[in-house]
């Protein structure tokens, strides 16, 4: 392997851990301890790569991570059901590192359950 190729390969491998820092996929959340909350969502953003909202919980304001717009729509959720401070229930997981952020597994509105995973 030429010296240039060695440097290029080393650089590529060194870049991999950076991906771990930027990522907030499911592995960043504590999955063995699902939490279920009741209440209204605030500041709902119906956007990509995934929807977001805010929710008051445990004395603080938490970032709530939803799903991509195409998935929320395909699974039967609509913006109008959650953006008017409707009282909903959600099951999710909190972030491992203590950041006040949770990722939602499912939302329950009345009798309806929408799986977001």
């Amino acid at each position: 392997m030429s010296p240039f190729a060695k440097v290029a390969l080393a650089g590529a491998l060194a870049a991999l851990p950076v991906a771990a820092l930027a990522h907030h996929g499911w592995s960043s959340y504590v999955e063995d301890e699902p939490i279920t909350l009741r209440g209204p969502l605030k500041d709902v953003v119906w956007g990509n790569p995934h929807g977001t909202a805010k929710m008051n919980w445990r004395g603080g304001e938490w970032d709530v991570i939803l799903a991509p717009v195409s998935r929320m729509t395909a699974r039967g959720l609509s913006l109008e059901e959650i953006n008017n401070r409707q009282r909903i229930r959600l099951t999710g997981y909190v972030r491992r590192d203590g950041t006040p952020e949770m990722r939602v597994e499912r939302i329950m509105i009345g009798d309806k359950t929408v799986e977001l995973r």
């Binding site: 991999l16 851990p17 991906a19 771990a20 990522h23 996929g25 499911w26 592995s27 960043s28 999955e31 491992r96």
Partner: peptide, 14 residues
């Protein structure tokens, strides 16, 4: 292992 580690999943993704 795949779920519990904060680095394994992103690396597997890449």
């Amino acid at each position: 292992w795949a779920r519990g580690s904060a680095t394994v999943y992103p690396i597997a993704n890449v």
